[in-house]
Amino acid sequence: MTALIEVRDLLVRREKQTVLEIEHLAVQKGEVLAVVGPNGAGKSTLFLTLARLLKHERGTIHFNGTESMSTLEYRRRIALVLQEPLLLDASVRENAAVGLGFRGIPKAESDRRAGHWLERMGVAHLADRSARRLSGGESQRVSLARAFVLEPELLLLDEPFTALDAPTRARLLEDLKSVLAETSTTTIFITHDLREAERLGTRMAVMLKGRIHQTGEPREVFAHPADVQVAEFLGTTLG
């Protein structure tokens, strides 16, 4: 089975400090990899590096078995959702379609596709509203629709629920889980919330101080932490 994305010997330094050092990380097609770790573990650096928004000093990132792809071409095969929805000062529909516009998709088609995904994310009734007048939960739903509408081969999510209140977060997590299951979108989901990781991830990677200490099915990781640091982070004991 070919990994959709495979990272080898990756080194990222910022201001002469090593912030990320990953020997090997592979994500198979259709998999949802939850990357967990405390604040400052390097999760967001990993996220930005995988999105090719941050340069790495050493190592390779293969996408679909190849490394030779222009940054623009690569970015047009992925989609990302950040912690803040970062919607544009435009209507909800225009926001959902913005990535399609970048790809030169005709307006009629992009409107239709945006409409479909706004519907799927439960915000179709807000399509003509200004994005500035949405609640936090609604904004994040639009942000997710804006990503899914691109039918990305790889979806990168960086703590997309952090700013939301608990009930909104729970509902959105459920909806996202069902969309991911339905579309089989390969996803890397960055979070510091273990329950979210367990809920959404088909596999989990524990990241501490810029290194991946353990990967495996969430249940497996919780039951058998690889070392003391992982056990400490998970709040379990070595088993």
Binding site: A51, R75, L80, F102
Partner: peptide
Amino acid sequence: LNPRLRLQLYGLGASRTQ
């Protein structure tokens, strides 16, 4: 503007001009 907006736009497939 929020500096992360640039990252978001790039992440949605925008070229530098876009």
